[in-house]
Design a protein around this nucleic acid. Sequence first.
RNA 1: GCCCAAGUGGCGGAAUAGGUAGACGCACAGGACUUAAAAUCCUGCGGGUAUAACAACCCGUGCCGGUUCAAGUCCGGCCUUGGGCACCA
Length: 936
Amino acid sequence: MNNKEIEKKWQNYWIEHKKFEAKTNDIKDPYYILVEFPYPSGAGLHVGHVRSYTAQDALARMKRMQGYNVLFPMGWDAFGAPAEQYAIKNHIHPKEAVKENIKTFKKQMQTLGFSFDWDREFSTTDPEYYKWTQWQFLQFYKHGMAYKDTIPVNWCPKCKSVLSNEDSAGGVCERCGTKVIQKEKSQWMLKMSNYAEDLLTGLNDTNFAEKVKLGQINWIGKSVGAEVTFKIKNSKETFTVFTTRCDTLFGATYCVLAPEHKIVDLITTKEHKKEVEEYKKQCLLKNELERTELNKEKTGVFTGAYAINPVNNKEIPIYISDYVLSTYGTGAIMAVPAHDERDFEFAKKFNIPIIQVLEETTGKIKENEYKKNSIVAVLYDEKEDKYLTINWHEKGGRLFIGGTIKDKETALECAKREIKEETGYKNIELISELPKINHHYYAYNKDKYFNIESTGYLFKLVNNEKDKQNLDEDEVFDIEWVDKKVIEKEITDELHKKTYEYALNPGPMTGDGIHINSGFLDGLNKEDAVNKMLEYLEENKLGTKKVNYKMRDWIFSRQRFWGEPIPMIYCKNCGWVPMNEEDLPLLLPDVAEYEPTDNGESPLAKIDEWVNTTCPKCGAKAKRETDTMPNWAGSSWYFLRFMDPHNNKEFAGMEAMKYWRKVDWYNGGMEHTARHLLYARFWVQFLYNIGLVPSKEMIWTRVSHGMVLGSDNQKMSKSKGNVINPDDIVNEFGADTLRTYELFMGDYQMDCPWNTDSLKGCKRFIDKVIRLKDKVIEGDSYSKSLETIINKSIKKVENDLQTMAYNTAISTLMILVNKFEDEASITKADYKVLLTLLNPIAPHITEELNETLGYSPICESSWPKYDEAKTIDEEKEIGVQVNGKLRASIKIKLDENEESIKEKALNSENVKKHIENKTIIKIIVIPNKIVNVVVK
RNA sequence: GCCCAAGUGGCGGAAUAGGUAGACGCACAGGACUUAAAAUCCUGCGGGUAUAACAACCCGUGCCGGUUCAAGUCCGGCCUUGGGCACCA
């Protein structure tokens, strides 16, 4: 028989005998394996799909043999724009296109032998399914979790169409290239922000990969801070800012309001009205991308108003700028340019004072320190690209110019004086004053500990004119101009090093340190100062502790045809009224035109007989909502439906869900780990809170796979011509070869390029397995010579399949096969165990070969057990090192005593050579691993 | 800019807990079988010094430094690539 016949034979066998049917309430333990259901595109199955489905299939097949009741379902996430586009073009109903595509996908999946339970198949576009998606939306609405709000959307003025973020990448319409603008639109929203904290803490009840959890955490974007209220000079208005750094309040030198902030118009003075109006207008013209991406240069205008800093009553100017978002926090900030990147940039541009309130600390703090103020001056010669340094040689190494500030002298005067005294240079120009540093050190010549506040300066050399130096007796050093490299290598003093860094990269100090210029916070570090300030604000009713999240509410409306209709009705008398639950599903109409309307309404808006209805509450004439749900809706709960797919009374029965508990193993693409998973968890948590699912988290482990790239290491795409069609591979090499190769190609969780030559290697491996059958002799126990490697292999393959190390599972089997080949004959038992271990990966050929041995099908047998004692070699070769270098290897018996190992090691010829005339300091023996002889 | 992941032969990739780096496969080279090809089998395959051959030695897991008897693996500092977020105060 050829490949195709064998594959067909077994695929039929599995289906006819319902081998993969998952029965709810089986007495066996449940195990739910889920792989993201695909969008059935016209392009057919991608080799990337094949990789993850095969991986999950292998796990499912092994788990079944291990005695679990495995639920391994498949379905279709078939709503979405491509089907709608196709429909517009060809004037057919998208459901027809979807039907065709599903047929293709399913056929492809079946030729690959995936062990899905097809009895549970459904599509999100089935009315029996989306009925429940709509029903769940109504629950959101009834529990106050869905509301309408006006939100700006991406709008293409030429296509007259609302665009998703993907369709408007780069700020232009994907189809016609017109610049996308923002248009306000009333949309349905789900109050997901209410769940921010629960979605965060819920992660503790999951076993997601760390990076997946991190993705969730970042998306939620929790930050703890304070809201502080500012009064306005000569006005009754106040405004509140959100800050995570209330410890820097003494350093606030201005405030910024988002241009959309409500009080802008109320506080803007007459003199500034025009500018403010103009700026606001500009902001409106910009689309979201321009506001965010074109952030090279800060813009903004002064309102003429002054805020009163509540901690020191200083008057500070209020600006408006679009670098403050109206949608986050309070839409207003206090700006601390000395300690925030953005504020620093803005302050530099608008010449706003910068007040340092936090000093970085360097050196080690000691008791009984003497305090003083000093400077470090960096003098730069632009022409030579060199810096002036003082070389104390052994007495203190290389430093910049430093010195102590005298009484009645400013820091700047001190810096200039020191340069002149120590080096003689007198024509210098100040470039910048650098942030102050709090430094602790020990002075050998004085035998004292010092704590200094050092001000750094960067000067430029104007010319080489010099006065005579004016040195103390103990000041013996060389003055040297050196370049960057020397500085980076030779200046090791922490204070000078740090000063140099500041000179090189002017910017705010955003790290930790100790507070200065901060009244009651002086001397505290960041954390303590934050807490103390919070206390102070709350005591004096100036502000409160506050938590903010980046995560916003979920915009749930799409102006599309091909999505679940939102089951809401607008009545002039009653407002928005939910449909009666018993009237669900609200079906999509059977029409053949799907062009959007000119004003950006969904295509549904044009279908009068569908739109016009009566109010469920008062019976008056009313209109249906014409927006549909986003693609994410149907996929937010499909894994629940798989637990009870034919239920026509509920979306899924509690009993069934309690039996299956949760998804044990969920595999999907990395690109979905943030949003899809977050939406799904939110959906489940809501259902849990209203008592409809058994636990708050319904997914236990989430893992992600790498992409299969083209052989050119690029993403596969038609335009690059590097697409591999799985059908071609199955035709030429067979499904088992393709499956084996896809798992063998590399680390499952990493991207990996396709290589047809490598695939041929897997074909060779399968052929070898087939040829082994000629060596099989009777015998129902393992050959003595193969016992150890067989036990080892069972252990390794079993372990690898459940840790996604598919590639090493296969290499283990290759090693086993090579070993079998070396034998003159192998027993039936030997062969059977090989076939069973390989079966999850290559199910067809292994079933066929197994049948020729006269055994019952592998899918009806159980997974082999290994004997731990027989997985260990009796004799082992270990390395012998001398001073960490490998010099010999010796054979040892399992658990041989240390003395005898040492003796063997020391007696190896090459080891003897290397320890000759040397003293053995110690001999390290790591049992069964290595010996290291340390000599001197 | 920030966060995450990854850098190992000609290539895909191994290396469980710090313990013989390069498993397994591909490609390549030589040989066997064959009229021939395919298939199959055998041998070699990180770089270098060296040798008739063996042995032996040196270097080697992105770069620099550290910890350790011992580092691909741990620590500190960089560089490069890929992915995610992107003015979130």
